[in-house]
Nucleic acid binder design. Structure first.
Lengths: 226, 226
DNA sequence: ACAAGTTGTCACAGAAATGTCACGGGAAGA
DNA sequence: TCTTCCCGTGACATTTCTGTGACAACTTGT
């Protein structure tokens, strides 16, 4: 099911949206500050974002612009209050995909979400697989391929899985247990030491002498910095 | 460079689109009435049309329908306003290839244009000779023929099928199960080992010592590299 | 600076996946 | 019926991947 991020500071609205979207079967994540939302967006792991304009930390407009500036194409629906600078939105310069004006009907919002998800689903099919840059590697998680200067780099399935997990949570700290649960599953789990070993292998392929992308957070876990 | 026709009555939008598309290197022609646009389309000399829905003279919907009725396959992207009968568009019954909802981001529109042009470019290529080069072989999937230095190489039906499947997904990884499902069908399926055997046979015919075209991706499947 | 706890690194062995081969059954054609 | 060609299988060799333990190097708090 598609993953949706809601960035909204008004508690009641946030909860209302979350519950309804979850009821519709979407996976929902939330943020109540603009800057937090932006960070979460950087992970690139959402299929769509509902973005309030008036936000503490960073305005929805800015989140939108900065996201696009990073070549992040995650579809964005802006939630604007009546009278807010609609011109900006309409002027196309922001890079948002759609917007709704508060107060809006839930059915209308849901319809728009569906339309956009459907549209992007099509685009994704046609488009070549997503390529992301991590350190000195160009990685495509879709077809398990990693390139360094257009030369393929060997990576095992587990290495891809771990890197993918780190990537989806880029910028955030993940514990060894998180990784074990996600990649190995709750049932069978090797030593926590095993994770370190994979980290070493990944580092050898990703990091260079002058740039560390997989950072150790002593006592807690690891963090992927893009 | 591809030729694009813009049919749009709103002056500002028309000019904005035209300038941007020209900047991207497209050849652009314009019309500001539905009936004019339709006439220009009849010449069949465009690679793509951006078609507004709300138009004087003839609606975009009608232009779309009549164009298709004339067996004219020029790709059409509809420019719809919010709230317009999206259902119709979505139902594809009109024969449009895609649509964007105003307000749309320019980057999105450009992306869609590229996708469609690429798609149709491929189709055109497919009409021409059906002989492809895979490794040291010249293969024609239509007449089940494989040549190596103009000498026919024996290949069984199943070998062709598997190679064809790999070829259609060239560059992407296909699992043994994918191959089994596609070539043998969901019902009867031999051992996964069987696939390996065919891979060996194909490799003997395709690969040379210095160039591997059928690559194994450990733990996942195989990938054909052209 | 020291001790205690964490993490980095390495080589190795068992496990799992793949490569390869030869053989038997079966279908199509002679 | 006999031959020939494909196909699928199983056994075995080979390659690749995983997980572990040992030890070095590093952090942290005292």
């Amino acid at each position: 099911m598609p993953r949706i991020l809601i960035v909204e500071d008004e508690e009641a609205m946030l909860i209302g949206l979350r519950d309804n979207l979850e009821f519709e079967g979407y996976e929902v994540d939330t943020a109540n500050r603009g800057d937090d939302g932006f960070k979460k967006l950087q992970s690139g792991s959402y299929d769509l974002v509902l973005l309030d304009v008036m936000l503490p930390g960073m305005s929805g407009f800015d989140v939108c612009k900065k996201t696009r500036a990073e070549d992040n194409d995650t579809p964005i629906i802006l939630l604007t209050a009546r009278g807010e600078e609609l011109d900006k939105v309409l002027g196309l310069e922001l890079g948002a995909d759609d917007y709704v004006t508060k107060p809006f009907s839930l059915r209308e919002l849901l319809a728009r979400i569906k339309v956009i998800l459907r549209r992007t689903a099509n685009v994704k099919q046609d488009d070549s697989p997503q390529r992301v840059t991590i350190g000195q590697l160009q990685v495509s998680f879709d077809d398990f391929e990693a390139l360094h200067n257009d030369e393929p780099v060997k990576m095992s399935y587990k290495e891809f899985e771990i890197l993918h997990y780190l990537y989806r949570h880029a910028g955030r700290i993940v514990s060894r247990d998180d990784i074990l649960d996600q990649v190995w599953g709750m049932d069978y789990q090797p030593t926590a030491r095993t994770v370190d070993n994979f980290i070493v292998r990944l580092r050898n392929k990703i990091d260079t002498e002058d740039s560390q992308h997989i950072v150790t957070v002593h006592g807690i876990g690891y963090k992927l910095v893009l």
